[in-house]
Simulated scan of single mutants.
Amino acid sequence: MGYARARAVLRSTDTVQAGLGVETVEKLPPSIRRPVLYRDGEEHREHRRQTARYFTPRRVDEHYRDLMERAADQQIETLRQQGTADLAKLSFRMAIEVVCAVIGLTESRPGLDRRLDRFFPEKFGKPGFTSLNGIYWVFKQNIQFLGIYLADVRPAVKVRRRQRRDDLISHLIDEGCRDGEILGECLTFAAAGMVTTREFVNVVAWHLFTDDVLRDRYTGGDDTTRVALLHELLRLEPVVGNLKRRTTGPVGDIPDGRLVDIDVSTANLERVDEGPGLSFGDGPHKCPGAYVAVQEADIFLSKLFAQPRLTMLKPPRVTKKPDISSYELRDFMITVRPQG
């Protein structure tokens, strides 16, 4: 499917979200509010309209840029002190701190990065009650849900039920969401804002370590040049390579009731406008935190590659999640120690 056709499907109001575990969510009782990722229609549009203020470029610059600077400095100081570090862990801690500030997960116990790694493991099993392996994954998934709820979500909600703050959790409380529903929203933003940003930062860094010309363009460029380069790399290396929609009416020549699987990587090759193509999606479900992700990636990477003697010790280990054509880069060891 070409770029224009794929974009038309994503922008159409005659489609609904598919994939990304929506089939499991649809089995929840009607009384439980679905996370915004799995809602469509007027309810979804109204929620996005009310929460858009948390992700505008102006708000990000005014409220979160200083936080991004501090978080990046903290992780790079960790690298300097240790001499050698796993870039995947540094970038994940950076992404977690930024997204937690946006959504309001600011009362967490230490170790949220480890809890999220357990919740989003490299290899997923299929939960179910027809096999021992399925039962194991049901039990494991519920344990991880409970751990994040008790250590991260419940403390944040408790504070905000007493006194609201200017963040997403406070907004959800005002909308009447229960704790379990807030947990679902927080995990959605964790996947979309923390996990994917880590992979984006890692894949860009890998390119910069292995292409001297590209590295010189990035480190020697101004803000506009660097962001354009990040957009281009994201166009060519989308973190989520496939997006699915189900039609609820005819969309061009696609009839009602069809499952449409959009190959983002292929569609992006035909992009005719500026920017990252469809790598942040498009239409009603376009990633609201796109500007957040690009800005924090640029702040972290520009600081990282300004470090003297920065070297990649070994390329990262790459795994794939075939259901969404996503990549994960792990054990990405870098150093600022002199080599010799």
Rank of each mutant, 00 (worst) to 15 (best):
P110V: 10
H63A: 15
T197K: 04
C177G: 02
Y3R: 09
P57T: 12
R165T: 09
Q17L: 11
F300K: 07
N268Y: 04
T319E: 02
G21K: 10
V227F: 01
E296C: 08
I299V: 15
T311W: 00
R49P: 08
Q50L: 14
V336Y: 02
S325G: 03
D331M: 07
L187E: 08
Q75Y: 05
F145W: 11
H231C: 13
V201E: 03
Q81L: 12
L236F: 05
A151E: 12
Q163M: 10
R5P: 01
G249V: 10
R59F: 09
V336N: 07
K158I: 10
I143Q: 12
I96H: 00
Q81S: 11
R65L: 15
Q82M: 10
T15I: 09
T197W: 04
E77C: 11
R271Q: 08
S131N: 09
Q75R: 15
G125Y: 03
V99H: 04
V251G: 06
T197F: 09
A6Y: 06
F280R: 07
R217W: 08
S265E: 08
R165C: 04
R164Q: 04
G241S: 08
E122I: 12
C186N: 08
T84W: 01
Y149F: 07
P127M: 04
C100N: 13
A8S: 13
T106Q: 13
